[in-house]
């Protein structure tokens, strides 16, 4: 029993490493793509790694209190926790992580957890821009969680299970079995929520690089920041894997995973480069109107189509 748990923990560490490195590389790839569009060369692929290393080897750090220490720790705990309960590769014992019968609920909870921990930590830093960023970020998060939760409820009804593995299993056997095609209404609601989750424009008001320096992490520096940077890559990749599992048929190998996640990510990037930023009240209104409506319709749709 103990040996089995140690084995699973070891396997999970491997997954964690691969997903984090992949997340950093995807970030660099997107940066380079945008740079090419603008006629620049762009950052080298090693740049995100160097940035993390540099913030880690800074010589000084100041603290604002115990919650300030714990904020980044909670944040990365949220990222790791989310990944821990998602089966990354379908049908692989090694990369199944700690998935179990009710993991979907836990994953949705963990996605919230990191943000709340970060809010507490950034709040203690005492910087007014942090407080503004948190207020905006949390209110926007509350807004996009609504269509996302509705979409998840919809597919839970559709597949009659709370296990991500089973949801992926039900989508095997060809592209026409993906949730994207069997329940496109829920997928649409979830993808609109996904735009808000990634923090690209038009929903990047909580980071707002120009007006409120960079929102919640304004005061975080040195090793705190390197934790946040790592989490940014890890959490971003984790969300992509979750969306791929729920709506795009999962992946049976790493190559398939990379192609699918990159395609999902490009949706947010393309929307991001094409649209200007929403104010926070506009983005909340947006999420509470059309995406929420689509989410509700998806539940009705599922009720009519899949239950008799």
């Amino acid at each position: 029993m103990i040996a089995e748990w140690f084995g699973r923990a070891g396997n999970f560490s491997l997954t964690l490493l691969i997903v984090t490195v992949y997340g950093l590389l995807v970030g660099a790839f997107i940066e380079r793509t945008i740079a090419k569009v603008q006629g620049r060369i762009g950052i080298p692929y090693r740049q995100p790694f160097i940035n993390i290393l540099k913030t880690l080897v800074k010589r000084t750090a100041v603290s604002h209190g115990i919650m300030f220490y714990l904020g980044p720790v909670f944040r990365i705990a949220g990222g790791i926790g989310t990944l821990a309960f998602i089966p990354v590769i379908y049908g692989s014992e090694t990369f199944a992580n700690f998935s179990y019968a009710g993991d979907l609920f836990l994953v949705i909870y963990f996605m919230f957890f990191g943000q709340l921990g970060m809010a507490l930590g950034a709040g203690e830093s005492g910087h007014p821009y942090s407080a503004i960023g948190i207020a905006r970020g949390l209110s926007q998060m509350t807004a996009y969680e609504v269509p996302f939760a509705l979409a998840v409820i919809s597919i839970v009804i559709q597949y009659d299970t709370l296990s991500i593995t089973e949801i992926v299993a039900a989508q095997q056997g060809g592209w026409q079995h993906w949730t994207l095609f069997t329940n496109w209404v829920a997928t649409l609601a979830a993808m609109l929520a996904f735009l808000g989750m990634t923090g690209y424009s038009p929903f990047d008001i909580f980071l707002a690089p120009q007006e409120i320096p960079i929102g919640p992490p304004t005061e975080f520096h040195s090793a705190y920041l390197s934790l946040l940077q790592t989490n940014r890559a890890l959490f971003g990749a984790t969300k992509l894997v979750l969306f791929m599992n729920l709506f795009f048929g999962g992946a049976t190998g790493w190559i398939e995973l990379m192609i699918k996640t990159l395609a999902i990510y490009m949706v947010a990037v393309v929307v991001g480069v094409a649209f200007p930023r929403f104010r926070v009240d506009q983005s909340i209104r947006f999420f509470f109107k059309i995406p929420t409506l689509i989410g509700i319709i998806s539940i009705i749709y599922v009720q009519m189509m899949f239950t008799s």
Binding site: G39, I41, G42, Q47, K54, T55, Q210, I214, T218, E219
Partner: peptide, 22 residues
């Protein structure tokens, strides 16, 4: 930061807060 000089290829980036900049 523009296309003509593009300092980001040398790892240069702007940072709006003194806590994070070097």
């Amino acid at each position: 930061m523009t296309a003509r000089f593009d300092a980001s290829r040398f790892g240069v980036a702007g940072r709006p807060t003194p806590r994070q900049s070097s």
